[in-house]
Design a protein around this nucleic acid. Structure first.
Length: 845
RNA sequence: GCGGGCGUGAUGGAAUGGUAGACAUAUCAGACUUAAAAUCUGAAGGGCGUAUGCCCGUGUGGGUUCGAGUCCCACCGCCCGCACCA
């Protein structure tokens, strides 16, 4: 008897699909289009199980949609710019370009055996000049439309390596290579005006019904809308005002100090002739710039000596401090502190001996604040002392509105809608990225490159043996004539954040070879992405930036109005995890071992390993399983089947050797069933045809529902069940053949090669991927009788078999007549009887 | 610190507010075999019991409901994100 041989089957069917060219997408009018996209990979050089899971999910959707009569676009590309290529160049030599393109070739070669339904003719990498040149054109259009501007911003500066560091390159406040204390330094950088669209980006989230609620919530919180007020505080030295932003003007009475950011103009003005203050500001500049670090850091400050008047009680003077906790980027970079109603302000006030005054009390408890700030929920009613915040018991929410109105009436401040969302800084002081296409000219200033000169191509002759950006020290590339006046000028040597590359690639896939960023007809036809699939780690930045770009591309005429929300449906999948195997070396340090080196909890030399619970697969912990190895021993279908089978797709899935083997055994079983049916006498009569076909239609129904709702694991469980039914079936050849061919169709999105083989083996017409998806016959789904569980007081006490269409009253009558209910009633009458037709009967006694 | 998520047998997990533990792994038993592997059949949340059955059970404590793994509140634990990683 022949056996299941995936390597032979898979190569054969991949060749057949290639030859038929069925994955090549072209615009047609006779079918509805469907665009399915998985987040494109960074070409690290090796595919991992996370990729397999991500692309398999997309492939299931793509193949299912093909079978249900859609014109499917399913492209693939490479997010190819970024630091790892430069790091590799520095660590092992070589050129980022060579490294990247070699990796792409390797990964493409590793991906193809998976049998994905990808239109490879549309493939591109973001580091192709054809791609980033169009990105430069987009940038120039956005510049013209006022969507890009320059301003000063902070960066992490490594004083030894003389280079800008990414947050991830800063470890405990030190540069990862040099170990030097990292400083903050100010550079003039390019920004996208995403904050202008904050309100719109937030309100449009409501329309994204097919996005996970948690992603919408995360974006909403990230954008962070709050209504507050800008209040000018008049300086007693006659030197103008300091504008403070507050979301809690109702606590105005308790204001006891003003704090400005170390980067605030007031702080900067004092720095020159106040050494103590300069030292403090210097210390602040050494702080980690991440939000998490800022929040955790101890709150410190220094008195500037400047005094301002309280805007409502001008006879009160408030000191102006510089606080390390005040962010220059949020609001006005200056706040007033109200220690009584903010724990952080209270800690600060106690530390520096500043006054604490209540703005309100809890009703009936007129006590001044001690060590704990009085911070009731904004919806709780309190008693305000100030007249402008409200009289009697009001909530803080009401008081805030009343206060803003009062301040506006008396011309003391202006209400402001403030967003947490900051503008998107896109400048990177690195080589391996898309060059920003502008030229700096001494007489003309910042001059956009002419479009006919695009792409501004990265020079190849660079080296990474000297710290810093190679573009900065590349005179023949850097020094160019001004596009405007022709005088000697310099190119911008900063490149773009790689998030820019990934913010519009989905649109480029609709016309990947065009000599404009997009083509109107193609974009109109293929956009939007009907189903986008990727990791939850991109829930905020990548998706928000893409939403911004889609709007910017609409404004600049590169996308239609209908595409400003580019992803109709989003699915965020979980990670692939694995146990970690650890031993200790002589010094007690952990040593990790690859799964293939561990057999029955032991190494080859017999050493027991400690098993640490599953975690995300990572090279450093060595808990990785190489997809290529799995494909070599079990085939791609097994790998695909397993990553879909065990866990719901949005959650993590644990890779286990036994699970992978079980998947392989199951596919072998299906193949053997097909083989057995193929050898049956074609006219063989049998018994149980009806049961088998009913089970088949139930399975069609359940699997279809599962695939459509991303319930792949549940769909697979149903397929296991149906396979067992088929295996035991004694039905006629005709019924069994129909059953196994339907099984093949239902499995085709997940295990496409095996499905094609079964289909062909049973003499199916053409390719299974071109066969229409089976439809469940409703008549075969309903049975004549149903078994209803009977509950007494919510606990299951028996069951009742009744005709499916029996009316409620009769069901109730029969339920009450059952032995279990009679026993429970003990001659009495039930308090209440609930009959849920087709589901349950509950008797309350 | 802020924001988000998760918590169910030995394990991964299933369950439109309606029979908790589908399906799979590991385990045990049986069939086949000289034997093993492979394959097939079956058992199985915990406790008591010969059994019909009864009690307990979805992180902890409350609440809503005829009925809660599911909804609400509080707590505990774990995981993820925090703007220059992709």
């Amino acid at each position: 008897m022949a056996t299941y041989s995936p390597s032979e089957i898979e190569a054969r069917w991949q060749a057949a699909w290639d030859e038929a060219g069925i994955f090549r997408a072209t615009r047609t009018g006779d079918k509805p289009k469907y665009y399915v996209l998985e987040m494109f990979p960074y070409p690290s050089g090796r595919i991992h199980m996370g990729h397999v899971r991500n692309y398999t999910m997309g492939d299931v959707i793509a193949r299912y949609k093909m079978s249900t009569g859609h014109n499917v676009l399913h492209p693939m590309g490479w997010d190819a710019f970024g630091m790892p290529a430069e790091n590799a160049a520095m660590a092992i030599g070589g050129h980022p370009k060579t490294w990247t393109y070699d990796n792409i070739a390797d990964m493409r070669g590793q991906m193809k055996p998976l049998g994905l339904s990808i239109d490879w003719s549309r493939e591109f990498a973001t580091c192709d000049p054809e791609y980033y040149g169009q990105q430069q054109a987009l940038f120039l259009d956005m510049l013209e439309a006022g969507l890009v501007y320059r301003k000063n911003a902070q960066v992490n500066w490594d004083p030894v390596d003389m280079t800008v560091l990414a947050n991830e390159q800063v470890i405990d406040g030190k540069g990862w290579r040099s170990g030097a204390e990292v400083e903050r330094r100010e550079l003039t950088q390019w920004f996208f005006k995403i904050s202008d669209m904050a309100g719109e980006l937030k309100s449009a989230l409501n329309g994204l019904d097919n996005w996970p609620a948690k992603v919408r919530l995360m974006q909403e919180n990230w954008i962070g809308e709050s209504r507050g007020i800008d209040i000018p505080f008049v300086r007693t030295d006659g030197d103008g005002t300091i504008l403070c932003y507050s979301t809690r003007p109702d606590t105005m009475r308790g204001a006891s100090f003003v704090a400005v950011s170390p980067d605030h103009p007031v702080a900067k003005a004092l720095e020159a002739d106040n050494p103590a203050l300069a030292a403090f500001i210097d210390e602040c500049r050494k702080m980690d710039t991440t939000e998490a670090a800022m929040e955790k850091a101890e709150k410190k400050g220094i008195d500037t000596g400047i005094r301002v008047k309280h805007p409502v009680y001008p006879d009160q003077e408030l000191p102006v401090w510089i606080g390390n906790f005040v962010l220059m980027d949020y609001g006005t970079g200056a706040v007033f502190g109200c220690p009584a109603h903010d724990q952080r302000d209270l800690d600060f006030a106690r530390k520096y001996d500043l006054p604490v005054r209540n703005a309100f009390y809890m009703p009936g408890q007129e006590v001044e604040v001690g060590d704990e700030a009085l911070v009731p929920a904004k919806t709780e009613k309190v008693v305000f002392i100030d007249h402008f915040a409200g009289v009697g018991e009001v909530t803080s929410q009401e008081a805030i509105d009343a206060t803003i109105d009062w301040f506006e009436e008396h011309d003391l401040g202006r209400g402001q809608m403030q967003y947490r969302l900051r503008d998107w800084g896109l400048s990177r002081q690195r080589y391996w990225g898309c060059p920003i296409p502008v030229v700096h000219c001494d007489s003309c200033g910042v001059v956009p490159e002419k479009k006919e000169n695009l792409p501004v191509v990265l020079p190849d002759d660079v080296s990474f043996d000297i710290p810093g950006n190679p573009l900065d020290r590349h005179p023949t590339w850097r020094d160019v004539p001004c596009p405007s006046c022709g005088a000697a000028a310099r190119r911008e040597t900063d490149t773009m954040d790689t998030f820019v590359d990934s913010s519009w690639y989905f649109a480029r896939f609709t016309a990947p070879r065009a000599d404009t960023p997009t083509v109107a007809e193609d974009a109109a036809y293929w956009m939007n992405v009907d189903q986008y699939i990727g990791g939850i780690e991109h829930a905020i930045l990548h998706l928000l930036y893409s939403r911004f770009f889609a709007r910017a591309m609409k404004i600049t005429g590169h996308l239609p109005e209908t595409a400003i929300e580019p992803f109709d449906a989003l699915f965020t999948q979980g990670m692939v995890t694995h146990e970690i195997y650890q031993t200790r070396d002589a010094k007690g340090r952990p040593v990790y071992h690859l799964p293939e080196d561990v057999i029955d909890g032991k190494l080859a030399d017999g050493t027991e390993v400690e098993i640490i619970p599953s975690a995300k697969m990572s090279k450093s912990k060595k808990n990785v399983v190489d997809p290529l190895g799995i494909i070599a021993s079990y085939g791609a279908d097994t790998a695909r089947w397993f990553v879909l089978s065990d866990s719901p797709p949005e959650r993590d899935v644990e890779w286990t050797a036994s699970g992978a083997e079980a998947a392989f055994k199951h596919l072998s079983r299906v193949w053997n069933i097909c083989d057995r049916i193929g050898q049956m006498d074609k006219d063989a009569p049998g018994q149980g045809d009806d049961e088998l076909l009913r089970a088949m239609h139930k399975t069609i129904h359940d699997v279809t529902l599962g695939v459509e709702s991303f319930g792949f694991n549940a769909a697979i469980a149903k397929l296991y069940g149906f396979t067992a039914t088929l295996q035991k079936s004694r039905a006629s050849h005709a019924a069994q053949r129909e059953a196994v061919m339907t099984l093949a169709q239902l499995m085709a999105p997940m295990t496409p090669h095996l499905a094609e083989d079964i289909w062909a083996h049973q003499g199916g017409d053409g390719l299974v991927i071109n066969a229409p998806w089976p439809v469940a016959d409703d008549a075969m789904l309903v049975s004549d009788t149903v078994t209803l569980p009977i509950q007494i007081n919510g606990k299951r006490r028996g069951e009742l078999v009744v005709p499916a269409d029996l009316d409620k009253a009769e069901v109730e009558k029969r339920a009450l007549a059952t032995e279990a209910v009679q026993k429970a009633l003990d001659g009495g009458t039930p308090k209440k009887v609930i009959v849920v037709p087709g589901r349950i009967v509950n008797v309350v006694v």
